[in-house]
């Protein structure tokens, strides 16, 4: 695992150094990539670790973003408190959804969250006097000036903090409980795991992180629109997490950055990029279910794994 940590440290240093040599365009791309990385890694915790395959993750991001923006706009609440309120609202909504879907699994859960997210999107479109509908809600920026660098570094620190928080959570017994629920809920309950509590907990944590991503995205991009919640957007997050590795939170985050970066790099190919994305999603799932990094890392990590095996024997 130390090599894996070393890889992560190198990636972090590269991310920190990028604005020093890349132009403002790539700083902008990077700042958006952190949004997707936050969503993909928290969705990986929800779907990959806890087995709750939700299509509503981007809806929580929109909920957090819209709530914090509307609170600042209508009640003059300072942005900092608005952000906290947006995240708390996303967590409360997450708890509610988590409680509602306790009895639903697999495709039932997917259809349920898909429908909920559609209803939420249509509400954002229809309630024009509040959300300005498809025109989009203007959100004032946090940092003055033209540069995207403050957002770049802020987004990166949010991502790192979120990854550390989730890794910390998984290192406790909760991580084991979540995987137990995913693999066999009945057996987990029989073994004394409070499955109700932990299923709701994972929804609360991941929805809060999605809400955080939304509160960051709004002020950075300057506008929130209902198209944040369309199915292709959720599909993008799912593809990022699956390609990066649905059972590895850093993998999902790196997958998001790579997928988003590549899609920007190959902008001239237009729609073909999404054809390739769909193909990549099917192929990765078919041949490398733990994501491309698990395949790439395998030769890197094998020697220590073998030693560990010997040590145990």
């Amino acid at each position: 695992m130390t090599r894996s940590h070393a890889v992560q440290a190198v990636l972090l240093i590269a991310a920190l150094a990028l604005p020093a040599w890349a132009g403002p365009y790539w700083v902008h791309v990077g700042a958006i990539a952190w949004y997707y990385a936050l969503l993909a890694s928290s969705w990986a915790l929800l779907a990959g670790y806890a087995g709750q395959f939700s299509f509503a993750h981007v809806a929580f991001a929109a909920l957090g973003g819209y709530a914090s923006a509307l609170l600042s706009l209508h009640f003059g609440i300072p942005p900092g408190i608005g952000v906290v309120a947006g995240i708390v609202l996303a967590m409360v909504a997450g708890a509610l959804i988590g409680w509602l879907v306790l009895r639903l699994t697999g495709p039932y859960l997917a259809l349920f969250t898909l429908a909920l997210s559609e209803i939420f999107r249509l509400m954002l479109v229809a309630e024009q006097q509040l959300t300005r509908g498809s025109l989009g809600l203007q959100v004032p920026g946090w940092f003055g000036g033209e540069s995207d660098r403050p957002y770049y570094y802020f987004g990166l620190s949010l991502l790192v903090a979120a990854l550390l928080l989730m890794a910390g959570l998984l290192r406790t017994r909760v991580g084991l409980f979540l995987r137990a629920i995913r693999d066999d809920e009945g057996a987990a309950r029989a073994a004394g795991v409070n499955t109700t509590l932990y299923k709701i907990l994972v929804f609360v944590v991941t929805s809060g992180l999605a809400g955080l991503a939304g509160t960051y995205y709004g002020p950075f991009v300057g506008i929130l629109t209902p198209s944040m919640v369309i199915l292709p957007e959720m599909g993008l997050v799912i593809a990022m997490a699956v390609i990066g590795g649905i059972e590895s939170l850093p993998g999902a985050a790196v997958g998001a950055v790579i997928v988003y970066g590549l899609s920007e790099l190959t902008r001239e190919y237009g729609q073909w990029r999404f054809v390739l994305l769909g193909l990549a999603l099917i192929l990765v799932q078919r041949f490398a279910q733990n994501g491309i990094f698990a395949v790439l890392e395998r030769p890197l990590l094998r020697p220590p794994a073998v030693e560990a095996e010997r040590g145990r024997g």
């Binding site: 697999g106 495709p107 995913r182 599909g235 799912i238 769909g278 999603l281």
Partner: peptide
């Protein structure tokens, strides 16, 4: 395949992404 439900959702959803965009192209 360990988790069949998720596998099926992901590959059939991937088929949508693939075919929809291939259709546009």
């Amino acid at each position: 395949v360990e988790r069949k439900d998720e596998y099926a959702i992901i590959v059939t959803f991937g088929l949508t992404v693939l075919l929809l965009n291939l259709g546009i192209v």
